[in-house]
């Protein structure tokens, strides 16, 4: 039971990540292959704030998300000059740089040793350290993410994003400052990825760079594409299916040294199948151009 609740917590965190990536990739049409970098920054910022400066996790979470958003603005800058596959490659490279910094800036991040003993969230002295109690927090945050991102994409702001996705030049000639919107999208996307990273750090209480590799970015992308580009609900369904389903491998008695590669093979194969058969995902309404 505890294990099942744990899987649900992880699913909630991935749902936030996938939904925030969907804003960038699915709604605005900007290919971004380094989303784990933002959750990495959120996780490390939150962990360091609470470990080194004794900041309460409740305060560390929004601050860390803010830091991730700031970096998001920087990552958004390339999107002003570069588009399409070159942007995909650039964000991929940026993801690697962030990972590389987490791994090598040992004075700050402890390098491959990682940060241990990250304090948990507490409500009136009660530690949210069990999966069950943490699930409540993650569920609230995921719901909040769903509402806020949902409002963003359904608003006039979101309409401009979809216009950029459809035809950037035409959007500019409609008097829209497309550059500003692109930066905003990366800021918001990175903010929520930062929230997810912080939630992860204070849940597992230990983080190291290996949780934020290229494979992580790809996993998030698979969930987003599978659930549906340009559909927030899809991202939540995608997370539920793609995080919970591979766990069944463990239940039928496959050892984890086999289950882990099998899971990734499954993600790789799924990505190929989606591209060939259904590039917009199960309930999406946009595919890569």
């Amino acid at each position: 039971m505890e294990y099942f609740l744990h899987i649900l917590v992880i699913t909630g965190i991935y749902a936030i990540l996938a939904a925030s990536l969907n804003l960038i990739v699915g709604y605005t049409g900007l290919p971004s292959l380094g989303h784990a970098a933002f959750s990495c920054i959120g996780a490390y910022a939150s962990a360091l704030l609470s470990l080194r400066l004794g900041v309460s996790p409740w305060l560390a979470l929004p601050l860390a998300a803010g830091v991730a958003a700031g970096i998001g603005a920087l990552v958004g800058l390339p999107a002003l000059r570069i588009t399409g596959d070159y942007l995909a490659l650039t964000t991929f490279g940026l993801g690697l740089i962030v990972y590389s910094i987490a791994l090598n800036w040992a004075e700050l991040t402890e390098g491959p040793m990682g940060l241990a003993g990250i304090p948990a969230f507490a409500v009136a002295g009660f530690q949210l350290s069990s999966a069950g109690s943490y699930l409540v927090l993650v569920a609230v945050m995921a719901a909040l993410t769903y509402v806020v991102l949902g409002r963003i994409v359904d608003s006039p702001f979101g309409r401009v994003l979809r216009a950029i996705r459809e035809d950037e030049t035409a959007t500019i000639t409609m008097g829209k400052d497309v550059a500003r919107y692109k930066i905003m999208v990366f800021i918001v996307g990175a903010f929520f990825a930062g929230v997810a990273g912080s939630l992860y750090a204070h849940y597992i209480t230990y983080i190291d760079p290996s949780s934020f590799t290229v494979m992580e970015s790809i996993t998030i992308l698979v969930i987003t594409v599978f659930g549906g580009l340009g559909n927030m609900t899809g991202s939540f369904i995608g997370a539920a299916v793609l995080i919970v389903f591979p766990e069944t491998l463990r239940f039928i008695g496959i050892p984890s040294t086999v289950a882990a590669p099998l899971r990734q093979m499954f993600y790789g194969l799924l990505l190929i199948l989606l591209m060939v058969l259904r590039p917009q995902g199960i309930i999406g309404n946009y595919h890569f151009k």
């Binding site: 409002r151 963003i152 006039p156 702001f157 979101g158 309409r159």
Partner: peptide
Amino acid sequence: RHESLFAAILP
């Protein structure tokens, strides 16, 4: 003004 992020979240 209508298309601001703020107006989107808290119209």
